[in-house]
Structures are given as C-alpha cells and as structure tokens.
Design a protein around this nucleic acid. Sequence first.
RNA 1: GGGCGGUUAGCUCAGAUGGUUAGAGCGCUGCGUUGACAUCGCAGAGGUCACUGGUUCGAAUCCAGUAUCGCCCACCA
Length: 900
Amino acid sequence: MPSALPSTYNPVDVESRIYQMWEDGGFFNAQPDQGSDAYAVIMPPPNVTGQLHLGHGLEDALTDALVRWRRMRGFKALWLPGEDHAGIATQNVIERELASEGLSRHDVGREEFLKRTWEWVEQYRGRIYEQHRALGASADWSRDVFTLDPKIVRAVRTTFVNLYNDGLIYKGLRMINWCPRCETALSDLEVDYVEEEANLYHIRYPIVGEGGMPLPDSLTVATVRPETMLGDTGVAVHPEDPRYEEKIGKTVLLPIIGRELPIIADDSVKMDFGTGALKVTPAHDPIDWEIGQRHDLEAIVVIERDASMGDEAGPYVGLDRLEAREAIIRDLDEQGFLESVVPYTHTVGHCSRCKDSVEPLPSEQWWVGVNQEYEPGSSLASNASLAIRSGRINVVPERFSRTFLNWLDDIRDWCISRQLWWGHQIPVWYCECGEMTVAVQDPESCSFCGSAQLKQDEDVLDTWFSSALAPHADLGWPDDTADLRYFYPTTDMQMGYDIMFFWCARMVMLGLYNMKSERSDERDIPFKNILFHGLIRDANGEKMTKSRGNVVDPLISASTYGADAFRFALLTGSTLGQDMKYNEERLVAARNFANKLWNSARFILMNTKQETVSPPDINNRLGFAVEDRWILSRLAGLEDEVNSLLSAYQLGEAGRKIHDFLWSEFWDWYLEMCKVRLRADDMVPVDILTYVLKRALALLHPFMPFITEELWGYLQPSVSGTDSLLEPLIIEPYPVSDKTWIDLPVESAMNHVIDVNRSIRNIRVEKGLPAGIRPDVFIRSDTFRAELLATNEATCFISHVALSILDSDQELPSGDFAFARVASTEVALALPQVDISAERERLNSELMDAEAYLQKMEGQLSNTNFLEKAPENVIDSMRSRLSDAKERVQGLRNRIDLLE
RNA sequence: GGGCGGUUAGCUCAGAUGGUUAGAGCGCUGCGUUGACAUCGCAGAGGUCACUGGUUCGAAUCCAGUAUCGCCCACCA
C-alpha cells in the first residue's frame, strides 16, 4: 500500500520485523546440496563475555555483504557463527567480579569458579546474538558454536593427541613469559613491549684471586634490573673483546651474596653495549637463559611467581621485586659496588590482558613445536608458509602475505599451557607410576601400570589453540561429516590484521595439519581467501579502548541511523586493510541516502497507481525514449561493474558505485525527466522506473539489507505475473548484466543533454532569473539535434525554460540573449536585458578555459610518439575531444564578436 | 635494526589491472518549499594528488630516493 509509506524512512519500524521474516523463512540456514556451489565463511568468534564493538560491526557488514551476494547468486551460503570462551579475558572478568565481593578464585575453588563463569556465558551469549541480529547478520544461528562445546572439546583433544603422537607437542622446561597478576604463562604474542624510562646501573664485581682472596681488580657490569643479580651465576664477555680477554676463565665475587661466578666468553655479548660485560641470570632473562644453557650455568630463581623475592634472595626475601631493586641499589652504593647510574630507555614486556609487567621465568610448560618436521621436509610453519607462497590461500590485500611470511620465517615454539581454570583442560593424565597418559577420552586407568589413580593436568590450553581449529572443527571434524565434505575448505575468512598471527596463522598451521588427509585434492587449507580489514579508530585517530572511554557501541549507532546506514557507512568509508576513523558525518550521509531511496520508491509507487508494470523488453529497445535507453544502459553497466568489484573484494567501491548511480543518474536526472511524461499519463516510465529501482534494490541488498527488503515487499504486488509466490529479496537472483542494453552512443547523447541542461541552469543562476520565470531558449546543434529534440519537453520541465530546437541552417536570434556553448551545441537564453560588458567578461572567461583545453588536446595529438604508441581507442577519444574543443572555441569567439 | 602503511579540496576519505578537464560526503558561497524526499533541490567556489628524480607517448597510479606521521616485528643487558 503506497499510501502507507511515510515520508521519512524509519528503520526501527522495519528492521526487527524484516529480520524475523528472514529467520522464519529459514533463509540463513544452509545445507549441503551437491547441485549447488558451496560458499562458507566462519565468523571470528567474539569473546563471549564481551560486547560487540565497531570492529565487529565492520566485520558483520563485510561478511554479511559477501554472504548475501553469494546467496543471491545461487550458492549454498553458510555463515557459521560462534563465540569464544576467551580464557584469560573471561577469567579476568569473573575474577574482578569476585574481587568486588572480596573473594579470589582460590577462595571459591575451581568448581564453583567454573560454575559462575558458565552463568556469565549463558547471559552474554544471548546478548551477542541480539547484537548480530540488530546489524542484520544473516548467519546460520542453528549452527552456532561455542568454543567449549563438547564437539569442540573432542576436536581440541584429538588435535592435541595427534600432535603429541607426532612429536609436535611436548612438555619442557623453558624460559617463558609469566604474568604475575594473571598467574599464568603467556605466549610471545601475548606480551606487548612498551618503552619505559629506567636506569642503567653499573655494578662492580670484584675479581677473585686464586686462594679466594679478592684482588683489587674488578669487572663492571651494566643492568637495568639489579634485583636479578641475586640469581647471577656467571658474567659473560665477548670472546674477542681485548679488554677482557685475559679475564676469561677467572672468577668474580657476586656482591652482597658473595657467590663466586665464572667469567665466560659468549658471542652473543655486544662489546659496544654498556661495559661489554654481561651479568648472567639464567633464571630471569631469556638471553641469559640461553647463555646459561650453552655454558651449563645454574639457574637460580630469586623472583617468585607472585613477583616477590624468593628464598634465594638472601636479605631481600619477601620484598616485592621493585622494593628489592631499591634496597639492593642502596646496599650496593653503601658497600661501594655501585659505580654509576645512567638514565636509560628500554622496552619492558607487559601482559596484553592486564597490562602488568611480565617476568621471564624458567618454567615447565606444554609447547607446540612449530618447526618440528612431522613429515620429511614439512613442519607446521613451513606448510603454512608454502600455502601462502603458492597462492593456494589468497591474501587480500596482497601486501599482508609478506607480513605473514616474515613472521613465519622466524617463528618460535608456541607455549600453549595456561595456569588458568577457564578453558580446555589439557588432556594429559599423570599416574603415580610417573608415566602420563595422553588421550581424547578421560582414561579409566594408567595406560602403563593400570592404576586408576590418575590426576589430570591442571592447566588449560591457550584459547587460540581451540579457535585455530574453527574452520574444520565447526564443520564436524574429527568426524567425516557431510558439512565438512561440502563446505570445507571454507571460501572466505575475514579478520582485523591485528590478529593475523594469533588466529590466521594458527588456523592455517593446524588446519593443514588436521586436514592433511585431504592434501592430494588440495582440500586441506582452512579457507581459500583471507581478507584483512583495518581497525576503526575514534575521530582523533586514537585506538578505541575501554580505558580511554572512546569506545562506540555499534548498536547505538545502528539504532540512531539505522543498521543499513551503519553498514553502508562502514563499508564505503574505507578500503580493505586500511584503518578508518569513526566518522559520524558518514552515518548521517548514509542515513540520508536510505531516506532518499525510500522516497524515490514512494514516488514510483505513487505513480504506479493500480496498474501493473512489466519489465522493459530488449526487442522494443528502439521504441524507448532516449532517457529510458540511457538509464537501462547505465544500469547494465553498473550491474557488470558491481559484480566484478565484488568478485575482487572491492566492496567499498561497489557500494559507492551503486550510490552514485542511484543519486546522480537515476534520481537527479532520469526520475526528474520522467515527471513530465508521467503528467501526460505516459506509463512507460513507470515500467522502467520500477524495473531500475528493483534491480538497484537487489544490487544494494548486500549492503543495506533491511530497507531494500522492505521496499521490495512494496514493489512486488504491482509487478505483473507475480500472482504466484512473492519471493523475498534475500533470495532473489543477484542482477547479472544484460549487456545488450549497453548503448554507448545513447550514453554520450544523454551526457550531452545533461550538459546542455546544466549550462542553461548555470546561466539562469548567474543572471539571477527567479524560479518562476520560464525564459525562451534557442538551441542549435549538429551532432545531437535528434536527442535534444527528443528530450525537449523534459528539458523544459527540469530546467524551467521554453525551448526551441533550431535547424542547423537557422541562425540563433540576436538581441537580449545570454549565450553558451556545450561542445558543438549553441545555447541562447532570452533575458529581459543584457549587460553587454558582463556578458563579454563571462564569455571571455569561458573562452580562456576552452582555449587552454584545446591547446592541451592539440599538443597531445601533434605528438607523433603518442600517435604511434597509444592505443587506438585512446587516440580516437582524444580526437573527438579535440574537435569538440575546436567547435567550442570557435563558437565562443563568434559570440564575442557579435557582442556590440 | 628490519618490514608495512598514510601523506589527494577547509575536514573525513575514495580513486582494483597507468589514458575523460582528479572524485564523494560534510563544511563553505548564492538561490530555492514546482505535491517523492529540506534526512531535499539547483548553481558555484575550493586540489601544482607531501617532495625530488626516473620509466613511459602519457604517472595521483609504476620505480628509486627524501621528508613527515603511524603501525608491526626483533633477545642489545
């Protein structure tokens, strides 16, 4: 009912109703169908206790556009959603909640802690659904996966067991990043390095004589962490350092503690840093750990896991590490060991979750040996690298593949155990007999001695270990399911470039490993295309974080401007891979676009009246008006372009193209030109207006699903031959260009008609003619006379003139007229009176412009190199521009001469 | 120390495979309510595409370098 359409589009009225209709229709649900092509994309699972932010909004807009496009193109399009248990992040949330009650997790115990966490999960999971829905995400909710679902647990355990059996997972004592606040080990990726102002302390270590008597000689080391000296077990110098050559092999006395330390030679020591002598603390520094390994030095732990000084810390036991630092410096100074203190800037690792500074500690943890070969010549890392290099996985934008490969080149083993409670508990059971059982199913008894006294490893796995399995695990692996056979490898994967290493790289590594049985068919990759989008920053370009308080809630934006406007603004506001600033003005513009679309549909429906409409028939093409053929030609071109842009993942450009077509061609010109015909009860424009609008709605649907679906519903009943089923737009075939409509001559003719109208309007405004005046206008044209004649009435209507098209042998009238030239067409607009000098000035300025352009064209076309080497079509178009320019210049000169 | 990206109109940004007189939105100037839309219309102003050199008939686009801002990676204590 057209009359029911209000004059302003109100998104809140339609969005939830439309979404409900889609869901009730089961359109999001994709099932394997051998008769159709599969399209699959896995949703990056948001943290279950978080809420969606603008980044998720962008991801939904991006993915939903791709999914809807494919669905409309006839693919069985599966968008598989999920949520991530997000180990540390979630555990921190619950711990904070406990803390507000004055409790720690240890007070409530593991079982109760997990129970409370699950309660949160249930609560927040629902909220996340609602957020996605509000944005219009056409995900298959019936398949929603949580990373702690039993089927994922089985996939995780199976992966762990297989990797273990292949020797790719091992338990080992290594230097790790320890977060004292979160009380867990972290992987290298979870440590953020921040530059900090500190001091470099130069400390004198006396050299010990043969009989243990201190000699006057000494060796000075430099350190920013004097508290670690309590754990020193050596001093290292470069083997070729002339200053220390003779001291290698001697012994120094560790101040305060009095332990004797060997002076060793190691290549890794930089001669030009500090004093060239490095105190070696294997237990508290990664480099020192390696030196210690090479030289068989003892690792003495002096800093405990809670960041306090431990039993080996001598007089400083129990102090916090920073308190200890001050005390030690004071003591060293008093005892004359502190040589100097110089200000120094260095980087310190911080926990990416809680921001506390991490401690390097030796610790026994579980590791994935990413460089370990599991087949001759192939490791997890090398296979991942090969998949990218060979192009089997296509990276968009391409430049990110380099970042990806550089990272894989010197990747180190992945620490996967976390001393947390929330997560996948490691499937390893320890027996009193000292053996361990690694199994998918909880074992009844020890596989070595048969004892039933088993104790499961208390640690859980890094969250990313389970997310890394998403593409195959979500589809049913380790079972050989129909979904897995049909939808794997998934087609597209999408994420912010900030989680390229965390997630993308690990998905590739573990996907290739778990699906290696499919390698012969090249079906082992987790996805064929990986798209990296940029990050959304606030209006000042700052990263949005809770602590800065500049986070924008996508739902507030979407409810203020409409989900469609939100999506359209994000998609067209930037380019894939490029960061963007959040810009409210863009949302307003997109909202206005939606409103304009709404009103154009309202106009068309008002004119449809009770009639039915039929799509234009290509066989009658020559029976259509110039503007009809023009808009149909432009539409066909647009359809072609949009499909090819979408194929190349140029979503923003595709959206902008549709926007520009609608606004500056369909609405500004075609629709306006139709009005005069509609007043004369010509019904042909109704057919074409409806047809173009419908095709445009379909083109736009992946970008603005709600309003297009809503308008589609209004348009359907008026189209003839649709008394059968009214199919919703979501499953309408995506427009594919019928190129026979493309008519380049008519396009250039219409461009000319438009230019003539612009020129007329320009004169009107310049001469200050009131809107109510309809001046006489005379036009003489050789090249486009027929088209100008055909669009005569439209021009009269849209430019408010009384138009006469002269024959080419007729003279333009003289007297009180303003003149203009559009290429070869002359325009004379009658004025009450003409100010000759103003007119001369105006024409002269136009002439100068025309002459400059003419000169440029002449220069180009007199260049023999250009004529020899440029392609034919470029030369042709240049020639036609030259002849237009010549005519224009000549015409303007004539006009100026005629002025008295 | 490596690597990547940005630098285009006052502001925010597009310009995929080099070829119209370089575009959009917002802002600005002037006019305008002719029943789709003032969340609108019309007409304008506004850019030596950061800089220097090169390749090419032709460069915002490709190459080399410079400046500047930003990001990522890296064990200089």
